[in-house]
Design a protein around this nucleic acid. Structure first.
Lengths: 247, 247
DNA sequence: CCTTTAATAGTCAGCCTGACTATAAACAGG
DNA sequence: CCTGTTTATAGTCAGGCTGACTATTAAAGG
């Protein structure tokens, strides 16, 4: 970083944007809010807001997420939040110079968010990715980047469990992969791979879930301590052999 | 992103920081500049500077890099520049609120940079990573993040060629991996893997480099069109089986 | 009951990798 | 000129992991 040159310094507004994903009804959903005020009023946008003078971007992201979803602070504090990238095109906001730090979060399926915060969010809603219409600002690009990032991260990290409730079956975990990747996975092979990775999932001592689904009852598992997958669990054929955009 | 609430808006300074790496004399080097002015005057720091009102962070990164290394604009424009992450801790700069977008770049070995820009850079120098003393601001953390990122990217991308001159031998390419990973790789196995990956490298029609090294002359290759490595080229044992910090 | 659905067990061949051995072609020195 | 060292390149071989499949078990629905 350079020195403070009065000629060079220019004030920017700094915001955070959040791409919060969940898997619901076999489709990847993202949390969107309807804008209530001027730029893009009425349009759907990613939740987010200004970074306050004494907080980091990540703190701002958690605060905004709590405000706009009504989730308890405790849940938000423990959430898997990951910095995606920063968007800084000069004209990305029609009003002024705004640099935005984008984050990605994965949450298990949960009830429709309560957009209580009377300020920013007029209404918040889970929307199936792909059914999301045009978004405000450059949020469509952010969403696309986030979507591609989480697809890639499923390959070499264990964070698919972040989409699942505390206890889940291997079928549920597999459906996370199938939903995000939009592919069918071989059931026995998936099971073998997951169980062969130490620390990915841990069997729950107790019983097996009985009702619920239609087939043979499945054993319950919890997320294990591992965070990385070595070797990775690669997407089937759709894995582009080359030319994949990096990062 | 949220609406413009005068209570919430606060002006920030936005800067870019660059972690520019090269492989030189068997060691990974990073480009550092000696600060000439007040905060941390005399200390070493990553090159960088303020984002101007009408440019994106990436444009600012390229401009600063050109200014501080004296590289021709053309070279800088074609450089592989990748956004690392954004650092926004409130107190990372003792003077004011500064949010910095960090970038990583990989360049082939080149002559010592000419720190001509009379303003920011008092002096610029390649420094072996690990021999770098304490750095200004949070640049030590940025450097560590950048180092770990490029190590990981070598596993599943083709960008090791970015460290090499336009034409290189497989021995040179291998030494890039060995230097960044600080491991020895099996020569025949490395060769087999690289040549088996379509589009990673392309044989140069002409001759093989003769003088130079001591052993049997090696064939010359150029970087191919591929950008991703499927399947990846994993680090030997030091690959942490789990607990790797995720991006 | 009988069909459908899903979980779980197990098999088998092919690919990739790590570990090694062998040969070729230069250079350094005596 | 011969020898040892160094590096490139060619192969071999066993083990691990993966993809493709088959089989069995245990529920739910009609």
């Amino acid at each position: 970083m350079a020195d403070y040159d009065p000629r060079a310094f220019a004030p920017f507004a700094v915001t955070v944007d959040l791409a919060v994903f969940t898997v619901r009804a076999g489709a990847l959903h993202v949390l969107l809010i309807r804008r209530g005020q001027d730029p893009y009023a009425g349009a759907w946008a990613l939740p987010g807001g200004f970074v306050l003078p004494r907080e980091s971007a990540e703190q701002a992201a958690r605060r905004e997420l709590a405000e706009e979803t009504g989730l308890p602070e405790q849940v938000v504090a423990a959430l898997h939040l990951e910095q995606l990238r920063t968007y800084s095109e000069p004209d990305r906001d029609p009003r002024m110079r705004v640099v935005s730090v984008a984050f990605t979060a994965l949450v298990p399926d949960m009830p429709e968010p309560a957009a209580e915060g009377g300020g920013d969010a007029d209404r918040a809603r889970w929307t199936a990715v792909g059914e999301a219409g045009p978004l405000a600002f450059d949020h469509a690009a952010i969403l696309a980047d986030a979507r591609s990032r989480i697809g890639a991260k499923l390959e070499y990290t264990c964070l698919a469990t972040a989409f699942c409730p505390p206890e889940f079956t291997l079928g549920e975990l597999r459906s996370v992969y199938e939903t995000v990747w939009d592919t069918a996975l071989d059931r026995p092979n998936f099971r073998r791979k997951v169980l062969a990775t130490p620390g990915f999932v841990e069997a729950v001592p107790g019983a097996a879930r009985l009702t619920g689904g239609r087939g043979k009852p499945a054993a319950l598992y919890r997320a294990g301590p591992a965070t990385a997958l070595h070797p990775p669990l690669l997407r089937p054929t759709p894995t582009p052999p080359e030319g994949t955009p990096s990062t």
